[in-house]
């Protein structure tokens, strides 16, 4: 059993409703044992006062944006929170999860990279979920015009739509379509939906570990910043060769590979493996039952890397490792694959 403290990163553009969402959660019985870390750009203290119900466990990160020079503070705040969680005699002891609210202008990627680079944190903190909050009034405009907002959605596994009850709100379907254009596999939840449960989003359950599904179609490459695509994999993938390739790829380009996941039939197991990664952080693969899923596939959400580059790179690596039977033949000859190709769901 994984005993590491689950970390839920909550991101979202300025005014999207991150703090309200978190505050509502910690006021519930389920959310009361949450440790909170807050980084609010230029408004240090405001959220601290709002989060009174867990004030003993709030680590307020002052001094500006998370993506700048304060990552050491994020690491220190997480260190402190883990120590508090483990020390039952102190305030904050017995915490069951940590929630980090990023600043509205922050790219959450450096936070995740901070987690990946700190051996102590890696051993004590488990990235459970990255939640992006998108509001129905300004969200569409932000996604169209603000690269920060697109990056926040691209890296999230869950997107929560807020403010759908306001008069100026855009239809949820339009927002969902805009989110899917950036992140086709994101779990999209509407806070107005009667089935919406805060615990499903913020309790730290394994949303990253749900069996993946391929994108039905690659997102159109209208945004050179972020693109998403599916790579079909034929047959059993040579796991040792694949791990060499992917670990090297994440080493060299992890800052541009926002998310990677897949369902793989491998040479190493009779059962399919589900893999998930966020930038430099790969989660332990999960074995599924032999009947789970259809054909093997990998999905990428990347910034500035095209599908054909990844395909050729994988084919080359498998050939170099003497196991090049897994990707479609045209790729190994160096010809670009038909864009938009995706395996049947």
């Amino acid at each position: 059993m994984d005993e590491r403290l689950p970390l839920i990163v909550v991101t979202g553009f300025l005014g999207s409703g991150k703090t309200t969402l978190i505050r509502r959660f910690i006021e519930t019985a389920e959310g009361g044992d949450s440790g909170l870390m807050v980084n609010e750009f230029g408004e240090a203290g405001v959220d601290h006062r709002l989060l009174v119900h867990a004030s003993e466990a709030v680590e307020l990160i002052d001094g500006g944006c998370l993506c700048c020079a304060r990552r050491a503070d994020v690491a220190k705040a997480m260190h402190d929170l883990v120590r508090m969680a483990k020390d039952g005699s102190r305030a904050g002891g017995g915490l069951r999860r940590a929630i980090l609210e990023t600043s509205g202008l922050a790219d959450p990627a450096p936070v995740i990279a901070t987690l990946a680079r700190d051996p102590w944190l890696k051993a004590h903190v488990r990235l459970a979920s990255v939640v992006a909050v998108v509001d129905a009034v300004a969200g569409l405009r932000n996604l169209e015009h603000r690269p920060e907002a697109r990056r926040q959605v691209a890296i999230a596994d869950t997107v929560v739509i807020t403010k759908g009850d306001m008069r100026a709100a855009e239809p949820t379907a339009r927002l969902a379509a805009a989110v899917r254009a950036i992140s086709p596999d994101a779990r999209i939840l509407d806070i107005q939906d009667e089935t919406f449960r805060l615990g499903d989003v913020l309790a730290g359950r394994e949303s990253l570990h749900a069996p993946p599904s391929p994108f039905l179609a690659d997102a159109p490459d209208h945004d050179s910043e972020v693109s998403s695509f599916t790579l079909p994999i034929e047959g059993a993938l040579d796991w040792p060769a694949f791990t060499l390739w992917l670990s090297a790829l994440l080493h060299a380009h992890g800052d541009r590979i926002l998310r990677v996941k897949g369902l793989l039939r491998t040479t190493s197991s009779d059962r399919p493996l589900a893999i998930h990664g966020v930038q430099h952080v790969m989660h332990p693969p999960t074995h599924l039952s032999a009947d789970d899923g259809g054909p093997s596939f990998l999905v990428f959400i990347a910034r500035g890397i095209r599908k054909a580059e990844i395909e050729r790179s994988l084919a080359r690596a498998l050939d170099l490792c003497g196991s090049g039977a897994n990707v479609p033949e045209p790729v190994r000859r160096g010809a670009p694959l038909r864009e938009g190709a995706a395996p049947a769901a």
Partner: peptide
């Protein structure tokens, strides 16, 4: 994560240790 050349999600693959080691040898050769 790359060490999951095993048949199940157990933390240490004691029951699959020979399989684990064989896949590891292959990876080191590559």
């Amino acid at each position: 994560w790359s060490d999951f050349a095993r048949q199940r999600d157990d933390r240490f693959p004691f029951e699959d240790i020979l399989h684990y080691r064989a896949e590891r040898r292959r990876r080191i050769a590559m």
